[in-house]
């Protein structure tokens, strides 16, 4: 009866729990890197530097404000792109690892039997 309970858990609830855990980890990673937010604000000035403007109306001052803001936007974009790049790598790695674990999970209870067979067959490195 306990074996039945074990199998029921391993192949149904346990597996689902594992998938949920992996999904939750993925969500936490996505939240930490907030890639969608980074994309939405990709061209926003970094830390709003120069976004306030000098308030002067002379042509020269406005040109200066424009270039200040442009520089701020470029710095912001570069920084965000770097974070997006690192984030994507980390998330992809997590997806790969999680998928492996999820796929390996149903095989785990069978592996001891495979090992016994390998012992009997006499496989060595």
């Amino acid at each position: 009866m306990l074996i039945v309970g074990f199998l029921q858990w391993w192949y149904v609830r346990g597996w689902l729990n594992l998938i949920n855990k992996m999904m939750s980890m993925l969500r936490s990673l996505a939240d930490s890197f907030s890639i969608s937010l980074l994309i939405k604000t990709l061209f926003s000035p970094y830390k709003q530097i120069s976004a306030y403007g000098s308030g002067e109306i002379s042509f020269q001052a406005q040109i200066s404000d424009f270039f200040d803001k442009l520089l701020s936007r470029v710095i912001g974009m570069i920084l965000r792109l770097i974070i997006i790049f690192i984030g994507i790598i980390v998330i992809v790695l997590d997806v790969v690892m999680s998928s492996l674990v999820i796929l390996l999970w149903p095989l785990l209870p069978i592996l001891p039997i495979v090992c016994v067979i390998l012992t009997i067959v006499g496989v060595t490195f």
């Binding site: 074990f6 858990w9 391993w10 609830r13 346990g14 729990n17 785990l108 209870p109 592996l111 001891p112 039997i113 495979v114 090992c115 016994v116 390998l118 012992t119 009997i120 067959v121 006499g122 496989v123 060595t124 490195f125």
Partner: peptide
Amino acid sequence: AHTSLAWLLWGLAIALCVVLIFIKYE
């Protein structure tokens, strides 16, 4: 030692791991 008995020990380790997971989470 290059003997296939290693598989048996690894099999036991995996079985023990499975039991441990079952105990902890269920």
